[in-house]
Amino acid sequence: MSMLEIKNLHVTVGGKEILKGLTLRVAAGEVHAIMGPNGSGKSTLSYALAGREDYQITQGGISYRSANLAAMSPEERAAKGVFLAMQYPVEIPGVTTLNFLKTALNAQRRARGESELDAMSVLKLVRQKAGTLQVSEEMLKRALNVGFSGGEKKRLEILQMAVFEPVLAILDETDSGLDIDALKLVADGVNALRAPHRAMLVITHYQRLLDYIVPDRVHVLAGGRIVAEGGKELAHELEAKGYAHFAKEPA
């Protein structure tokens, strides 16, 4: 049994069907890439997995560690180890980044029946992870994402991933808006989290990120369905031939 099993998933947003029968399996320890052109349904898939309310599942289902993921609230999913690194992290004035990390981590721990960590333990944990991602003390003291550059926001998403230690991590276009140095930094952060008990779904438009986060499997998403699957070499083929070539072929 795979960790994540998506079967014939249909998702409607605002009355419009975006995912039209998507099927995907991801096993523990694997990194899968989902590639696709704009409008193919990549972000819809990530939001459906994280549980956004306005993303309605009309057919099919998502099973995560043998449980029905679709029936869970976003916070339940987080507590059970699902993490989505968002393409556009939101800015929350008035809540410091460090305080946010503590609140979220402890909420997850509480939901799992674990003891809460005090401020000092959280600070220690965050500091230990923040260094390699070049997230400064100053950033931790600022309001969450407020006035952060695109690169800083993405680094903070990866820091959250490192702190929460999810079981299933979904990265939605984490590479968008990053220069090559920032991209390498983020990729190093992601690679450091690869583990036998953890699965990752890396969603991207471009092959570039996959030079640094090398996937076990690559899936091509077009028109709300997976239209091609293969090993890491598929990403290079896409780069050479473009999406148009794949979009025509059924999977």
Partner: peptide, 14 residues
């Protein structure tokens, strides 16, 4: 709603 979803997706109850 975007901000609310962001916080909930990090495990913070509604």
């Amino acid at each position: 709603p975007e901000s609310l979803f962001y916080l909930r997706s990090r495990g913070i109850p509604e």
